[in-house]
């Protein structure tokens, strides 16, 4: 049996009207950025704006050749992935400990949360000095930690993402029944085996969501990358800024570079969207 088609009610019209407004609001800047990236130099600044033009790849070629964008992408991928791996490795173990053993009786957990309460700009100068000094030591040299070295960014991003990751993961671990772990322990498994065979498989959606958020944050981060790197360790977001030249802003290459930097994350999130929503509601839907 087919449901009768719904009539258009005033409320329905209003609802879809609002959805349309929000949709335009959010997608127009991105669309504008992508359109601009394909415009020839003459059309970029034309007023009123033109929507019909001869598309060109000049801006992309310019961005990649002039600004060494291949290196920026490599740096960004390396820093983002490395810091995410570190955050997940440390964060899952810490969060499990907080969730299961109530380590520190909430005080340590709260302390960790407080490190998120000050703005990044407050710590960026101390970081600059710390990394400059570490960079001069042999340890800093060996571990690639120092100014304009990827290690400095990896450590900074790990520091900044870890509290958020722990905070998110604790609730995922709390949702896993203690009896499941008890049962596995009685079934002949060691604590570490229980963690690997029972707890982590169940926490996978939560860990995946956390990892995605960390990755996105690290990918998009600007301030630390701007202050702590110059050339060799420069990342995409800062790379975009390199077209703000003394002669003026090169909007075409800026749009091309911005498109390159945004695209991987958009594709990534679209692919994982369903998984992420499931992960975020993980605790709520379990019976």
């Amino acid at each position: 049996m087919y449901q009768q088609q719904k009539r258009a009610t005033p409320f329905g019209v209003l609802r879809y009207g609002l959805v349309l407004v929000v949709l335009l609001w959010t997608t127009f800047p991105i669309a504008w950025m992508i359109i601009t990236s394909f415009k020839p130099a003459d059309d970029v600044m034309r007023m009123p704006p033109v929507f019909v033009f001869k598309p060109t790849f000049d801006n992309y070629v310019y961005a990649i050749e002039k600004a060494n964008f291949a290196l920026f992408i490599r740096n960004t991928v390396f820093v983002a992935v490395a810091s995410t791996v570190l955050v997940i490795a440390l964060g899952t173990l810490a969060a499990y400990s907080f969730a299961r053993y109530n380590t520190g009786e909430g005080h340590i957990l709260f302390f960790i949360l407080t490190t998120k309460m000050f703005p990044a700009i407050a710590v960026v100068l101390p970081y600059f000095i710390i990394f400059r000094e570490i960079g001069k030591t042999s340890v800093g040299q060996a571990l690639a930690v120092g100014l304009d070295r990827p290690g400095a960014l990896i450590i900074s991003y790990t520091m900044f993402n870890l509290p958020f990751a722990i905070w998110l993961l604790v609730s995922f671990f709390q949702d896993i029944s203690r009896e499941l772990e008890d049962s596995a322990r009685l079934d002949g498994y060691s604590r570490l085996q229980v963690l690997a065979k029972v707890v982590f498989p169940l926490a996978t959606p939560g860990i995946a969501v956390t990892a995605v958020f960390c990755l996105i944050f690290s990918w998009n981060e600007f301030l630390f990358a701007y202050i702590l790197t110059r050339d060799a360790a420069r990342t995409i977001t800062v790379g975009v800024e390199s077209f703000f030249t003394l002669r003026g802003i090169l909007w075409g290459p800026v749009a091309a570079a911005a498109t390159i930097s945004v695209l991987p994350m958009i594709i990534f999130v679209l692919l994982l969207q369903r998984y992420m929503v499931r992960g975020l509601t993980f605790g709520a839907v379990r019976g």
Binding site: S177, E179, L180, D182, S183, R185, L186, D187, G188, Y189, S190
Partner: peptide, 14 residues
């Protein structure tokens, strides 16, 4: 626990 050869049935089935 794992060396005691104990089996347990749980309230929430686990």
């Amino acid at each position: 626990a794992r060396d005691r050869n104990v089996a347990m049935a749980f309230e929430t089935y686990a």
